[in-house]
Every structure is written in structure tokens, then in C-alpha cells.
Amino acid sequence: MAVYGFRGLGWFLCGVIVAPTCYMVTSHGAAERAKLRAMDSAIVQAHKDIRGLETEFDTRANMAQIERWNGDVLAMNAPQPQQYLASASGLAALDQPAPAAPGDAKVETAALVIPTGQRPVETAAAATPPVATPAAKPVATASAAPVKAVAAKPVAMASAAPVKAAPVKSTVVRVAQSDTKPVQDLDRLIRKIDKSRLAQPDRPLLSAATISDLRRVAKREQTAQR
């Protein structure tokens, strides 16, 4: 009979402790699974974002834009054949003084082919400059918005196209003009740099709290040594 009496307690324990525990295990499992799914979808979202950002980057830095920057600021050109060395002996010969007569300074700038990227030959749409609106932007898409300065550029070029025919600029002239530009740009950048982030001599590098901490530690070490 006593057993029968305890039987009720057994059922009670089962109902109150074991079943909720089992339920907790399964619900914990389900929660973990849900977290996993959330992580998976976050990964997919991140991949999508990466793709979108990549597209935006590619669009902002497309070939025509890079070439325009090259013409405006960098003025880099393709390496000349003399800059390629066929063999080790060629490398060794680099150091030797040139056999050419002294005095004839070789200025090669005129021959350099510097990609400057003036592309006034645009589409039929861009050929009609009065539309000085977003219509003339190089690309107008959701994820890829050209920066404002960039967007203004093709418009300016398109409108400058008819005027251009008379004075033909040669590469040499462009080089001479762009000489001062990189320096100016550098100055502008330096001015832009956040001054607060730079270490300044009149301000202590460490905060007062850190200094006092250090002092306290040093004092303790000194007392310990005595």
C-alpha cells in the first residue's frame, strides 16, 4: 500500500521535474538551431553586402574614373622599355656611368604616354550638354552613387568639348601643369588630418590616473625591497 502511496509522488515528481527538464533540453536545442539559422542568414546578408559594396567600389573606381584621376593628380605612365632588364648583366650595367657624352641631358618627359582620360566622346545623351542634371552622371544606380565632384566632371567635359578643338594640348603641357598639383593635394590632406589624434608635445601622453597608479606600484616595490 505504501508503494501505492509513493506512486502518486512518483508521478508528481515526473510531472514537476523530469518533464520540464526534458522540455528545457528540447527547447534549448531549438533555440540553438534558431541561433544557427539566424547566423546563417546573417552570413548570407553579409555576403550580399560584400557583393553590393564591391559593386559600388568597382563602379566608383571604374577605368575611366581612374584614368581621369591619373590625368589630374598622379600622372603615372606605362614603364618604358629601358626600365625592363632582360638579364642579371643588365642589372649590373645599371650602375655603370653612361658612355654618352656629358652635357646632353636626356629629358624624356615629352615622350611619355600619360593616360589622362579626357573622354568627351560620350553617348548621344551626354552629347547634348544642356541636360546638366543627374542625367549626365556616369552611373546612377541604387547601390552606386558617384561622389558629387566626380559626377560634375563629365558634364563639365561634355560642355567643354566644342571649345576644345582649337587649342590642342599635348601630353608635355599636361605634365608641366600637373607638377604642382600633387603637392597642393598633399597640403590639403595634411590640413584635413584630425589634429586631436596627433600626439602633441604640450599634452601628457598618459592620463593623471595612470600616472598615479604607476607611482603607487613603484612605491610598493620600493617598500618591499627594504
Binding site: T55, N62, V139, S143
Partner: peptide, 10 residues
């Protein structure tokens, strides 16, 4: 969904 040509008219 839209088609984008990142290199514009290239």
C-alpha cells in the same frame, strides 16, 4: 532587380 554595368560605357 536591375542590371548594372560598373564600367559605364566601356
Amino acid at each position: 532587380t536591375d542590371r548594372l554595368y560598373p564600367q559605364s560605357d566601356m
